[in-house]
Write a protein that binds this DNA or RNA. Structure first.
Length: 258
DNA sequence: ATGGCAGCTTCGAGCTGA
């Protein structure tokens, strides 16, 4: 069973890219972020035609998250995090799919550090941590998948020194990520690739970042203790990031037994 | 320190992203 995450940077603007990726890699579950569309403009019919049912949580202009499932429609269990204010940005959707509870997230960027946006990012993560803990208590097999907007360690940044002041690389956020791991969540890519390999999921559009492999690892898949033993493989679909006109993120995937 | 690129938006310069 393959579960993938892909920050598409505009689901309508890049629909052909997303459909080509689905046809090429055939994930059982695909979590999408940065839809940049309202609910009524989400291309559900195109995904249906490609063999995927979907649940989605859109928003005008920015943000937006969706969960696709091959051959079935995910059973939505929640949209938004507990404690979100009314009218909050569309950054979380959760659904039961093929025996796994899938949380699809798009964490706030938070730049610049010290701004109201940064405070909102930390507040969002406080709600996310509480919900992640609640999910662990249920004992269900859960995967929390998406664009965390955190580089967890220096290994996850091509030149760490240049990112010290960035909102994606603040000690408190790295602590948050480490805290999640300490609570029992497994970082799937690190579990597969080890603690020395450089694995990136995002490359800026400019300065030939992708060609130089000047990347960041900010898209993550965290597995609950009940799910982690099923982890068999993981990877990044770099050949789709390499395509002309692609998102600045690459699709990231894991393979689970059964 | 800055800028580089790209998508979105009551059509076009400004916001946001990372």
């Amino acid at each position: 069973m393959r579960i993938a995450t892909y920050n598409v940077n505009g689901v309508n603007g890049r629909l052909e890219h997303v459909l080509a990726w689905l046809a090429d890699t055939r994930p059982d579950v695909a979590c999408l972020q940065e839809l940049k569309t309202t609910d009524d403009r989400f291309p559900a019919a195109a995904f249906e035609k490609a063999g995927y049912g979907a649940v989605w949580h859109g928003q005008k202009s920015w943000n937006g998250v969706a969960i696709l499932a091959r051959g079935v429609t995910p059973i939505e269990t929640r949209r938004g995090l507990p404690g979100d204010e009314a009218g909050a940005q569309a950054r979380y959707i959760e659904a039961a799919v093929k025996g796994v509870l899938v949380g699809c997230l798009y964490a706030p960027n938070g730049n610049p550090v010290g701004s109201a946006k940064y405070a909102a990012k930390e507040a969002w993560y406080a709600r996310f941590m509480a919900h992640a803990d609640w999910l662990l208590e249920t004992g269900q097999p859960v995967v929390l998948v998406g664009d965390y907007n955190i580089m967890p360690t220096d290994l996850d940044v091509y030149v760490p020194e240049r990112w010290r002041d960035d909102a994606l690389f603040q000690p408190s956020l790295k602590d948050t990520y480490a805290w999640l791991r300490g609570r029992g969540w497994t970082d799937a890519l690190r579990a597969v690739f080890g603690d020395e390999a450089r694995v990136y999921t995002f490359w800026k559009y400019w300065r030939n970042s992708f060609q130089r492999d000047a990347g960041l690892r900010i898209d993550h898949l965290l597995l609950s203790p009940t799910l982690a033993p099923r982890l068999e493989a993981a990877g990044v679909d770099r050949h789709h990031r390499a395509k002309e006109g692609s998102s600045d993120h690459g699709p990231v995937w894991i393979e689970l037994s059964r």
